[in-house]
């Protein structure tokens, strides 16, 4: 009698291609990440931000509807704010093709900044699921014995981070743009805001590519989960300290050139890319010309912060992020080996 009733059978079927196998690694990694309750909470915060954005876009649209509750309630506002809103409404009515783009550019720039924070948190929670655990359990050996190379493995893991950023960032942006404009009083809001979506999407994709690479590098630092998660948080928070150099008192900073230490911060570099993609300098100029009160509001802003938004140091950011990515790639190449 055979030891086991089940018998071996040969398999005949068509095997999937390499991109499908990479996608399997990405999907498996993402499933592993989403099992964590803290990550699900961070996701909820991201989508909550998207819903808030929908509410703001809806309220903005309702300002154009004379009898709406939102339009009527502005009568109770502070005179300065009421004046600002009246100027904005006038601009939206006269030049919707410019004003819708500019206002949504600004709103999506803000939303992207908010989502960056939560995405960084989400990655801190996901970093141990990427390469760290596989290093700890020597699973790289199993991966390498399958029909993939170690670079396919790395691409798959990058897909995991990309998928995660899709959920924490790109998804909320697209969702809020679509629903926000769907609730607007005119269909042309969709058309006029297409550039805002394009800018937010471009920035999101660029940031996703950069953060994926950096997350993989940090994940490959050690086989211990606590070490890599802490390393990610440390890099982020120390970076924020460097970037806060720009927030020193204006009398100190007004005469000093931009400080190179700021470029040690990933989020600062990303914010420079963001300002350049959204072209906020042009938008602010247009807004200032059309809504007089905006000029007054900007007068009180930190000149250094304003300069960072109006004339971002794109090349400095690109070079810094490039160096960071090169270090991350070297770390991955060094650590991700079967033995």
């Amino acid at each position: 009698m055979p030891l086991h009733e089940a018998h071996y059978q040969h398999w005949e079927g068509v095997r999937s291609g390499i991109w499908s196998r990479r996608a399997v690694i990405a999907a498996n990694g993402l499933r592993g990440c989403l099992r964590g309750k803290w990550l699900r909470r961070v996701l909820a915060a991201c989508w909550g931000g998207a819903l808030a954005q929908v509410a703001v876009l809806f309220a903005l649209g309702q300002l154009l509807v004379k009898d709406s509750l939102v339009a009527r309630s502005t009568n109770n506002f502070d005179p300065q704010l009421r004046g600002f809103l009246q100027g904005l409404v006038g601009w939206l009515e006269q030049h919707p093709e410019i004003s819708v783009r500019v206002t949504q550019d600004f709103l999506f720039y803000q939303l992207s900044g908010y989502l960056t924070v939560f995405t960084m948190l989400a990655i801190a929670l996901a970093v141990p699921h990427l390469i760290t655990r596989d290093l700890g359990s020597k699973a790289i050996l199993i991966y390498s014995s399958k029909a993939i190379t170690r670079w396919d493995y790395v691409l798959g893991k990058a897909g995991t981070v990309f998928g995660l950023i899709g959920l924490t960032w790109l998804g909320p942006v697209v969702f809020s743009w679509f629903l926000g404009n769907l609730l607007a009083p005119h269909w042309h809001f969709f058309w006029h805001s297409r550039l805002a979506l394009l800018h937010a999407g471009l920035y999101g994709l660029g940031a996703a590519a950069v953060l994926s690479g950096l997350a993989l590098g940090v994940s490959a630092i050690s086989p211990r989960e606590k070490i890599t998660a802490t390393a990610w948080l440390a890099i982020w928070l120390v970076g924020r300290v460097f970037s806060s150099i720009g927030n020193a008192p204006r009398e100190v900073l007004a005469s000093t050139p931009r400080h190179w230490l700021e470029h040690l911060s990933t989020t600062f570099n990303l914010s420079q890319l963001s300002a350049s993609i959204f072209r906020l300098g042009d938008d602010l100029q247009l807004a200032r010309e059309n809504v007089p009160l905006i000029g007054n509001l900007l007068h009180g802003a930190n000149p250094r912060a304003l300069a960072a938004v109006q004339s971002p140091d794109v090349w400095g950011a690109v070079i810094s992020l490039g160096v960071m990515l090169a270090i991350a790639a070297a770390l991955v190449a060094w650590r991700v080996k079967p033995e």
Binding site: R15, R21, V24, G136, S137, A139, L141
Partner: peptide
């Protein structure tokens, strides 16, 4: 040596390995 993919159940692990070979 033991080099299983962590936190996977046996069935899930073997399925995943098959997928990595193109099934």
């Amino acid at each position: 040596q033991d080099c299983h993919i962590p936190r996977m159940v046996g069935c899930e692990y073997v399925t995943y390995c098959a997928q990595l070979c193109g099934l």
